[in-house]
Design a protein around this nucleic acid. Sequence first.
DNA 1: CTGAAAGCGCTTACAG
DNA 2: CTGAAAGCGCTTACAG
Lengths: 367, 367
Amino acid sequence: MDSTTIKEVAKIAKVAVSTVSRVINDHPDVKAETKQKVLKVIKRLGYRPHSGARQLVRETSETICFIMSNRDVINPFHSRILFGVEKYARSVAHSVIFLEFDYPPHVPPDELVLPRIIWERGAVDGLVLAGTNYPNFVRAVKALGIPFVLFGSNVVGRLAMNDLDSVWLDHRGGAQQATEYLIKLGHKKIWFAGELSLPWGRACHQGYASAMRESGLETKALDKQKTESLFEFGSRCGAEIAAGSDTASAVLAGDDHIALGILAGLDRGGRKVPDDVSVVGFDYIEQFDYLPLPLTTLRVLKEQVGEELARMLFERLANPKARPMRSVIPTELMIRKSTAPPGGVNSDIPLAPGSESAEQDPQVSRL
Amino acid sequence: MDSTTIKEVAKIAKVAVSTVSRVINDHPDVKAETKQKVLKVIKRLGYRPHSGARQLVRETSETICFIMSNRDVINPFHSRILFGVEKYARSVAHSVIFLEFDYPPHVPPDELVLPRIIWERGAVDGLVLAGTNYPNFVRAVKALGIPFVLFGSNVVGRLAMNDLDSVWLDHRGGAQQATEYLIKLGHKKIWFAGELSLPWGRACHQGYASAMRESGLETKALDKQKTESLFEFGSRCGAEIAAGSDTASAVLAGDDHIALGILAGLDRGGRKVPDDVSVVGFDYIEQFDYLPLPLTTLRVLKEQVGEELARMLFERLANPKARPMRSVIPTELMIRKSTAPPGGVNSDIPLAPGSESAEQDPQVSRL
DNA sequence: CTGAAAGCGCTTACAG
DNA sequence: CTGAAAGCGCTTACAG
């Protein structure tokens, strides 16, 4: 029905197919008159060039693929990253294929069955690997020879990152900044509650520990079990803090959901926030604005992560031989109502640096 | 580097290209021995067939496109629909291109500049139109002749739906069920708070009004202004209810965010929920589980909407001549803590029908 | 079961 | 500025 080809357009317009091709590709060397004539026929016939034929003959599909690996739960976090990728891709006239891909971590790279769309040649120009990834898949993609950029913060397992393009969230820096802020408020007994078996949990802990060490303070970390939910873990932490005598006056949580659990546990234990205990979350979640007590938290600019992933991929495509790149997206300390000096005095502590900053530029480095 | 073609494989394996083609397409008429020989060469050379060449010569790209139109805010709602679409597409070995597309409502269809990926022929086999759409774009897509399915609930403006494939959320039925539940609890003064200028707001209101009418009760609707946020609107409603003397004992909100605002407004006005006023939301939002008072609300199965959109599209692709289809996805009444009989007595009111049901089948009809 | 050849719908040197 | 021709990498009748 609508399968008009360039040949038919050429015949009806009484020109050669090459002329029609020049017209649809906006080639400058076409007489204005001829161009108008051809355009009219194209419009009349409803001609649309065939995508596959173009891909075959050009070197590009003008499409990239966003792979969300091993998404085990509905994850607004990663969909925001996707939106950022799509936004950037659109700005450079590319399309994004969205693919979920689940795979076991322990299958050797050459035994992984890759999705058709990335296995076939020419369907996509490059890949963004997001979601939770393991080394085997990253190696399999590498073996394919297709350009890709990796969201590094969510890679579980040992993988050499120095020869890869990657974008990271600054969990470490964020946690450090938050801890320094708590210290500046006057807190000494500051605990960390997070998932130390996961890389981003460890990164948070490192930032926390580093800030504590610099101030000569003792660290204490509460570790999440695999079996409990973030909220349950938080509640447990809150209960523990509420019960103890020589207990924390402030906690840094590795996630907003943990922080909410802590609030609940403290509340059940009869402790007030922020008067008795200060709580800081991680990864500002807009929906939690409706909570009675707005959390002090580290805001994560998810769309910026996506845009940076895409930007880096296109830079790689433009420059295949360049050295590997690494980019770190800063977090933003949002000081709200769940933190106060020990004792809950409402003194005029100045905001920590960066807390009022707008979107910051990522820190990009050549490796 | 990795641009091995079928020709090279054929030459090295000492067979014809047609034989290689049969092997990679799992054609049955290949001697096992030959197949093994070819497979070995393919593996050794890292041969991957070219996607564009296949598209050109086959009739399908095995790709569909999910278009999210005019998304003005970060919208977890529509990303969940996308996930459902991708899930179904993957189950039938197709890829999904994710495209955001913003357009003005008043440009005539033939003047809209369509995204390259849907304008080119053969790049995608069909389209899912989600997000907020206006008639002009739907008509432009129709003129393209490419099969598509429309998320009908979010279409703003007058558009004949009878000759289109569409999937709908049962706003009307859900609102009716929720209202009937409130009536059964014993409420008489039940108000509705929603956005009547939008089609889904009107649909909710219709269901509400219909249930009220059947019980001979008077309706009262509070309408959201364009300028206020959902939460602000809700707060205003809550304040109005708290202030009045001849006031509502229950409210049905057209959205969970409105319901939260109502809670806040009532609280500020000194009214207790559910003792003084019952509140029902719409579109269960998981994150709100952490609120002190879990909302009674209508759960919307967003991924199911997506899966149904995709299912319908593939049905259309398999059967281009079939009559237009329409499918309605039911909502699910979740009874929690924000509703009670008037006066707040904790009597043993039975659950409303459907409140405990698992995922229901959509209601599909041929038009 | 296998091969030689035509053809899918474009773009791109190459002539003129 | 325009046209004729080659070629991109596959698949698919058609022969054998």
